[in-house]
Design a protein around this nucleic acid. Structure first.
Length: 717
RNA sequence: UGGGGGAUCGUUCAACGGUAGGACAGCGGACUCUGACUCCGUCGAUCAAGGUUCAAAUCCUUGUCCCCCAGCCA
C-alpha cells in the first residue's frame, strides 16, 4: 500500500512507548489502538493482534465498508498481525454468490490481502451446532414453540420486563431431541426456535432469551440443502471470532449492546474470548449508506446496478475512476472514533483529486464544442504539437497532438460580452490555445433564427508557435482545444451527487429518502470531441481532461455504443465560484453551493422519484424587497423583516438568519425569494406572514437574493 | 419514563491536569501555457451551570441535547 500518511499524522517518538513491551505499535492515537496498546501492555493476548473483516454477502461493499476494511487490515498490518476475510453468511434468504464474488473482488482491489484466510461462517455450521447442543446440555438454551407474534408480546418493552416463555423449562433431554429434529427438518419455518436462557427481565433487550437458531428451509448458497436451521448473528459471530482466534473484534456502534450477549455465549461455553470494540460507522453527505436503501435504488432502477458510478459502492467508485489509494487515504483521514459523524463528501473528492492529480495523464477534450475557424491558417495544413502528458512529471512523457485550420474549443470559453474578469475568449481578445498558438477572435457567427453562436473566426500568430510569444507578451487565458478534423467523437457521462440534500436519510418524519434523489445526478453529453490519442483509452486509467476534470473510459458501455467516458470528479473550479458569487447574493457560501447543479444544461435522464412541477407550483414564490429590518428582542436568531411583495401592505416576516448578518442593515434593499402563500403563523414575537428562502446554518447561512431588476411581487418561476 | 453510547472550529479527527492543534471547507494573496496543482496568509470550537485545582476540553456534581435497542436481519 505504501502509504506515507501514517508518519505524517503520527505523533513524534515519545508516544512510541505506548507500544509497550513488544514495541510494535506505531500508531498511538485512535481509541482502538489505545485499547490494543493496553492489551499488549498487560499481555492479554500475548502481544498478538488478529482482526477480521466480516461482511454479510447480502449486497455490494460501499465506502462505509471500506472504512472498516481499512481499519481492520491496517491495524493488523501496523501490529504485524493478521486480518481474515470472513463471509458472515448465516441468512441464506438474503445472501447470494454474486455478492461473495463482488466482495472478494472489491477488498482485493482496495489493496488488501488475506492470504489463504478467506473463511465463511457457514464453514462452522457443524461446530456451531455442537456448541448449541452444549449450550442446551449446560441448561443455557431451550427449544421454544412460541410464534414470532407471541415472542414479541412476551419480550416486554423498553421500560417493562418481559415474561418467560412457557417452554422455557423443558428438560435438557427434550431440548436436545427437539433441537435434533429441528436440524433434521421435521418442523416448519417459524414453528420452533432455539433460545438462550438468560433473563427475560434484563434491561438489555438482547439478553431477553434471544433466539439462537431459527428454522429456514432455504437453499444456502454454499451448503445447499444440508441445513434446515441457521444460527443467528450473535451466536455465529462470537464463535466464528473465537474459532479463528481473533483478538479484536471490531464492529460498529449499534452492536454495543450486543456485546454482553457476545460475551455471555463465550463465557457459558468457556471458549476463547476476543475483545469486541465498537466504532462509529461512516456517513457521507449527499448519499445513503444503508444496504437496504442501496438495494432499493438498484432493484427499483433508480440507478443502473450496484456499480453505477453514482453509487457509493466500491464497484461504483471503481467504475467512476476512483483509485484504491484515494479511498484508502480518505479512510485514513476521516479517522475513527465513537462520535456519530457525517463526513463531507468534499473530503472524498479532495482525496480523489489529490491522488489523480499526481498520476493522471493529461489530455484535451472538448465537452461542448464550439467551432473555430482560423482564417489566416493555411487550408489543408496539419501540424503536430508535442504536448507533455503531465506538467510536473516529465517521466510521463509526451504525445503528439494534431492542429489544423478548424478547431473546437469549449463553448463556455467564449463570451460575446465578457466581464473584465473573464480572461478567456471574447471578440477581439487574444488567448493561447494550449501548446499551439495565440489566437485572436475576429468574428462571431450566429444562427439567424435562434441567435445562438454557431461559429467563431480567429486569426493566429505564427510567431507564437508552441504557445509562447517571442515578444514576451502575455495572455491571461489558455484554452484546451482539439482539431476538428482529427478529433474523435465520444459521449460523456457527467455525474453529480445522487441526492440533493446533505442528509437524505434524515428528512422530516415520513419523508422517503427517494424524494431527495437528485434528478440531475447523471447528465449525458453527446458529440463531445476528444483528441485522437483517447481512442484506445484504457478503462483502468483515469485521465485528466485539462481544465475539466478527471475522466475514464466506461468499461460497462465500451463495446458497441461508441466511446463513452465517465467523469470521475471535476477539477476545483474557482472561476465557477467567482461567477456564481458575482451577481447579487452577498453571502452565497454554502447556501448557494448546496443548490449547485453542476451539470449546467444538457439533456437529463431524469431517474428520480421527485415531486412534479405541478406540486412545486403550489408554492407561490414571489420577489420581495426588504424595506425594514429590526432585531427581535429575546431571540438571538430572529430578525424581523418588513418585506414588500407588491401588495399594499408590507409583510412582516420573522427569519432565523441573524447569526449570518452581524449588521442586519446589510439586508436593506435586497430582493429576496418569499414564499407568499405560506399559512400565517403566530409566533411569540408576532405574526409571521411568509418565509424567505435561505440555506445553511448559523454564520454560514445565506439567503437567496435575486439578480436583475425584478419587481416586488413578481412571480418566481 | 428502561438500558447502552456520544457531545471540541462549518465538517472531521487530535490534545489523556499544563500554549486547544491538524485536515477538509471558507476567505485573502502569490505563482501559473490547466481560473488546476503548489505556496503563503486568514477566519474559526471545548453542550450548559456549578465545584476541585496554581492550572480543567480533560477530574467531580447537576442538567441539556443527539444516536442505538422491543427481527426467527446483520
Amino acid at each position: 500500500m505504501g502509504e506515507t500518511q501514517d508518519s505524517i499524522t503520527a505523533r513524534p517518538k515519545a508516544s512510541e512507548e505506548d507500544a509497550g513491551s513488544n514495541g510494535t505499535a506505531p500508531k498511538p492515537t485512535d481509541f482502538i489502538r489505545a485499547i490494543i496498546n493496553e492489551h499488549n501492555r498487560t499481555g492479554r493476548f500475548g502481544g498478538r493482534v488478529h482482526t477480521r473483516f466480516p461482511p454479510e454477502p447480502n449486497g455490494y461493499l460501499h465506502i462505509g465498508h471500506a472504512k472498516s476494511v481499512c481499519l481492520n487490515f491496517k491495524i493488523a498490518a501496523d501490529y504485524k498481525g493478521l486480518c481474515n476475510l470472513r463471509m458472515d453468511d448465516t441468512n441464506p434468504v438474503k445472501e447470494d454468490l454474486e455478492y461473495i464474488e463482488s466482495i472478494i473482488r472489491d477488498v482485493r482491489w482496495l489493496g488488501f490481502d488475506w492470504d489463504d484466510r478467506l473463511y465463511y461462517a457457514s464453514d462452522y455450521y457443524e461446530k456451531l451446532y455442537c456448541f448449541a447442543v452444549e449450550l442446551i446440555r449446560r441448561g443455557k438454551a431451550y427449544v421454544c414453540d412460541q410464534s414470532p407474534e407471541e415472542m414479541r408480546q412476551f419480550r416486554g418493552t423498553l421500560t417493562e420486563p418481559g415474561r418467560e416463555s412457557p417452554y422455557r423449562n423443558r428438560s435438557i433431554e427434550e431440548n436436545v431431541t427437539l433441537f435434533e429434529l429441528m436440524r433434521a427438518g421435521e418442523f416448519k419455518e417459524g414453528e420452533k426456535t432455539l433460545r438462550a436462557k438468560i433473563d427475560m427481565a434484563s434491561p438489555n433487550l438482547n439478553m431477553r432469551d434471544p433466539v439462537t437458531y431459527r428454522i429456514l428451509h432455504t437453499t444456502h448458497h454454499r451448503t445447499g440443502d444440508k441445513w434446515h436451521i441457521y444460527p443467528m448473528y450473535d451466536f455465529a459471530h462470537c464463535f466464528s471470532d473465537s474459532i479463528e482466534g481473533i483478538t479484536h473484534s471490531i464492529c460498529t456502534l449499534e452492536f454495543e449492546d450486543h456485546r454482553p450477549l457476545y460475551d455471555w455465549y463465550l463465557d457459558v461455553l468457556e471458549a476463547y474470548h476476543p475483545q469486541q470494540i465498537e466504532f462509529a460507522r461512516l456517513n457521507l453527505t449527499y448519499t445513503v449508506m444503508s444496504k437496504r436503501k442501496l438495494l432499493q435504488l438498484v432493484q427499483q432502477k433508480y440507478v443502473n446496478g450496484w456499480d453505477d458510478p453514482r453509487m457509493p459502492t466500491i464497484s461504483g467508485m471503481r467504475r467512476r475512476g476512483y483509485t484504491p489509494e484515494a479511498i484508502r487515504n480518505f479512510c485514513e483521514r476521516i479517522g475513527v472514533a465513537k462520535n456519530d459523524s457525517m463526513v463531507d463528501v468534499e473530503l472524498l473528492e479532495f482525496c480523489v483529486r489529490e491522488d489523480l492529480n499526481l498520476k493522471s495523464p493529461r489530455r484535451m477534450a472538448v465537452l461542448k464544442p464550439l467551432k473555430v475557424v482560423i482564417e489566416n491558417y493555411p487550408e489543408g495544413r496539419t501540424e503536430e504539437f508535442e504536448i507533455p502528458n503531465h506538467p510536473d512529471v516529465p517521466a510521463m512523457g509526451s504525445r503528439k497532438v494534431p492542429f489544423s485550420k478548424v478547431v473546437y474549443i469549449e463553448r463556455d470559453d467564449f463570451m460575446e460580452d465578457p466581464s473584465p474578469k473573464f480572461f478567456r475568449l471574447g471578440p477581439g481578445k487574444e488567448v493561447r490555445l494550449r501548446g499551439a498558438y495565440f489566437v485572436t477572435c475576429t468574428g462571431v457567427k450566429k444562427d439567424t433564427a435562434t441567435g445562438g453562436i454557431t461559429e467563431l473566426t480567429c486569426t493566429y500568430d505564427p510567431a507564437t508557435r508552441g504557445g509562447d510569444a517571442p515578444d514576451g507578451r502575455k495572455v491571461k487565458g489558455t484554452l484546451h482545444w482539439v482539431s476538428a478534423e482529427h478529433s474523435i467523437e465520444a459521449s460523456i457521462n457527467l455525474y453529480d451527487r445522487l441526492f440533493r440534500v446533505p442528509n437524505p436519510e434524515g428528512g422530516e418524519e415520513g419523508t422517503d429518502f427517494l424524494s431527495y434523489l437528485n434528478p440531475g445526478s447523471l447528465s449525458v453529453l453527446t458529440g463531445c470531441r476528444l483528441e485522437s490519442s483517447l481512442a484506445d483509452a484504457d478503462p483502468e486509467i483515469t485521465y485528466q481532461f485539462e481544465r475539466q476534470g478527471y475522466f475514464c473510459a466506461d468499461p460497462g458501455s465500451a463495446p458497441k455504443g461508441g466511446l463513452v467516458f465517465n467523469r470521475t470528479v471535476t477539477l476545483r473550479d474557482t472561476w465557477a465560484k467567482i461567477e456564481k458569487g458575482k451577481p447579487s447574493s452577498e453571502p452565497p457560501k454554502k447556501a448557494a453551493k448546496e443548490q449547485k447543479a453542476r451539470p449546467v444544461s444538457q439533456p437529463e435522464k431524469a431517474s428520480a422519484d421527485t415531486i412534479s412541477i405541478d406540486e412545486f407550483g403550489r408554492i407561490d414564490l414571489r420577489v420581495g424587497l426588504i424595506r425594514e429590518v429590526s432585531l427581535v428582542e429575546g431571540s438571538s436568531k430572529l430578525l424581523k423583516l418588513m418585506v414588500d411583495v407588491g401588495e399594499e401592505r408590507l409583510r412582516q416576516i420573522f427569519a432565523g438568519i441573524r447569526p449570518a448578518y452581524p449588521d442586519p442593515d446589510d439586508l436593506l434593499g435586497k430582493k429576496v425569494a418569499v414564499v407568499a402563500n405560506l399559512k400565517e403563523r403566530q409566533m411569540k414575537f408576532g405574526l409571521s406572514q411568509g418565509m424567505i428562502l435561505a440555506g445553511g446554518e448559523g454564520e454560514r447561512m445565506g439567503i437567496v437574493t435575486l439578480n436583475g431588476d425584478p419587481k416586488p411581487g413578481d412571480k418566481i418561476s
